Deep mutational scan, measured.
Amino acid sequence: KNAAKIVNEALNQGITLFVSDNKLKYKTNRDSIPSELLEEWKQHKQELIDFLTQLES
C-alpha cells in the first residue's frame, strides 16, 4: 500500500493524519483506532511523514 491510499482509508474512517514536529499524528472523533490501522501506520511511518509533509508544503 502506498501513503496516499493509507491516508485516504484513514479519512474514510473519520481519521485525519498529519505531521507535527516531524512526528505522525492523528485527529479523530472516534473512541478508538483499530489496531490494524495503527500497525499499518507504524509500518509505513516514514513514507506517511514524507507524503504528508510534501502535501503541506
Rank of each mutant, 00 (worst) to 15 (best):
I49R: 02
I6Y: 04
S20D: 13
V19S: 04
L11N: 07
E40H: 07
T28A: 06
D50N: 11
L37K: 04
S57W: 08
N22K: 08
L17C: 01
Q13G: 05
R30D: 05
S35L: 14
T28E: 02
L48Q: 00
I49F: 06
I49P: 00
E39W: 08
K45Y: 15
T28G: 06
L37F: 08
G14T: 02
I6N: 01
W41Y: 04
R30T: 06
I6A: 02
D50P: 03
G14D: 05
T28D: 03
A3L: 07
L38G: 03
L17N: 01
D50L: 11
D31L: 11
F51N: 02
N2T: 14
L48V: 05
E40Q: 15
E36D: 09
D50Q: 12
Q13P: 00
D31K: 03
N8F: 15
V19Y: 05
E40N: 07
S32D: 10
L52S: 00
I33A: 04
E56T: 12
K42R: 14
R30W: 06
H44D: 02
K5G: 10
W41K: 00
N12Y: 09
Q54T: 12
S35E: 15
L11Y: 12
I6D: 01
D21M: 07
E56H: 12
T28F: 04
K23W: 04
L38F: 10
Q43C: 06
E56R: 03
Q46R: 08
K27S: 11
I49S: 02
E56F: 07
H44T: 03
P34V: 03
Y26E: 01
E9P: 00
I49N: 02
L37M: 14
R30Y: 05
Q46S: 08
S20H: 13
N12I: 14
T16W: 10
L48H: 00
Q13D: 04
A10S: 05
W41N: 00
T28V: 04
D50C: 06
Y26L: 04
N29R: 06
S20C: 10
I15N: 01
V19T: 05
E9S: 06
I15T: 02
K25Y: 13
K27N: 08
W41V: 05
E47I: 13
L11A: 15
E36M: 09
N8V: 11
N29G: 11
E39F: 07
N12W: 08
L48W: 00
I15L: 02
Q54G: 12
F51E: 02
T53Y: 07
D50R: 10
T53M: 14
E39L: 11
I33R: 02
E47N: 05
E40P: 02
E56N: 15
A10H: 01
Q13I: 10
L17H: 01
T53R: 09
I15A: 03
L38E: 07
Q54V: 10
I33E: 02
T16V: 15
N12R: 07
G14E: 05
L37P: 02
S32E: 11
D21S: 06
A4H: 09
S57I: 12
T16S: 07
